[in-house]
């Protein structure tokens, strides 16, 4: 019997309507944008107007696919981050906690399943749906600008290879980012579980007060520094933005040339993000996360 699979299925039953709507946001936005004939681009800080007819077809297709995939991912991820603190006490709120507690399921897996579903699986699925939406949008986009033949003439092997590489990089990056953000996420969940609706305000107020006290009386901005480091590393988990030689990407590259180079660059970027894990801060993050998870288990054991 696969308990975890069933608990994930429960998340699908409970949230599928919202998830489907959110996952289709990129398609809706794309169709709306397609209704416009001009795109306003901002290149290297210089405002420029470029009619989409002037853009190379491969760039348009890449923009549609990667853009829709990224939009799907980020919208889903932000919604999940917003929802996750409430997961800790949703069953208490709808009075179903005692039903779930009557099942022969461990507390840890009961808590881990919704986190896995909301923080990892849903954003990744939304990215996949976004990419599929982007493919459909690229057909419409190129049919409107360069003709349908241009869409069939695209270098699909490279384009799909890059898309796959991007998805793998984001998937792995999400894992790293979630790892770096886990103390913050679990702190918010534990605060919400124990202090109910006052949990998040109390947590924010507590962090600010402790941070200020430490800074004022001990001259150590350790709270701000730690928070900043966690957020920076979480961001780098998704994308370090460094070329192998250490040169930052400036977005002014030829898209066709990038197609061939990008998978290798993404691989190196993933290695760079992995190297970030070798830092004492990770131990602190894991320790705080484990402590908060234990608090969640304790709270759940107490039932309603």
């Amino acid at each position: 019997m696969n308990t975890l699979k069933t608990l994930l299925q429960r998340e699908w039953f409970q949230h599928r309507t919202g998830w489907i709507v959110i996952a289709l946001v990129p398609l809706a936005i794309g169709l709306f944008v397609l209704g416009m004939t001009q795109l306003h681009l901002n290149v290297d800080g210089n405002e420029a107007t470029l009619t989409i007819e002037e853009a190379p077809p491969v760039a348009l297709a890449l923009a549609a696919i990667a853009g829709a995939g990224a939009a799907g991912f980020f919208v889903a991820w932000l919604v999940s981050l917003f929802q996750v603190p409430g997961l800790a006490r949703r069953d208490q709120q709808d009075r179903s906690i005692e039903f779930w507690l009557s099942m022969p399921v461990g507390h840890a897996v009961s808590l881990a399943a919704p986190m896995l579903a909301h923080l990892l699986l849903f954003p990744l699925a939304a990215m996949g749906i976004g990419v599929a939406s982007g493919l459909a949008l690229s057909v419409l986009l190129l049919a409107k600008t360069a003709g349908l033949a241009a869409w069939f003439g695209l270098p699909w092997l490279s384009l799909l290879g890059l898309t796959l590489a991007l998805m793998l990089r984001v998937g792995y990056g999400l894992l790293l980012t979630t790892l770096w953000l886990s103390p913050l996420i679990l702190l918010a969940m534990a605060a919400s579980a124990w202090l109910k609706r006052w949990g998040l305000p109390a947590l924010v107020a507590g962090v600010i007060v402790v941070g200020k006290l430490l800074e004022t009386f001990f001259g150590t901005p350790v709270v701000w520094v730690t928070g900043r480091m966690l957020l920076e590393r979480a961001g780098r988990g998704l994308l370090t933005g460094e070329k192998p030689g250490g040169v930052a990407v400036n977005g002014n590259e030829d898209p066709t040339a990038m197609l061939a180079q990008a998978p290798g660059w993404l691989w190196d970027d993933a290695l760079g993000a992995t190297a970030d894990l070798a830092h004492p801060l990770l131990l602190l993050a894991l320790a705080v996360s484990a402590g908060c998870f234990a608090l969640l288990v304790l709270r759940r054991r107490q039932g309603a």
């Binding site: 069933t6 608990l7 299925q9 429960r10 039953f13 409970q14 069953d91 709808d94 179903s96 399921v105």
Partner: peptide
């Protein structure tokens, strides 16, 4: 759980 359909409860109990 108020959000669940009866058939979904059966599915979930079958797995749990």
């Amino acid at each position: 759980p108020r959000w669940a359909r009866v058939s979904e409860l059966i599915t979930m109990l079958g797995g749990l």
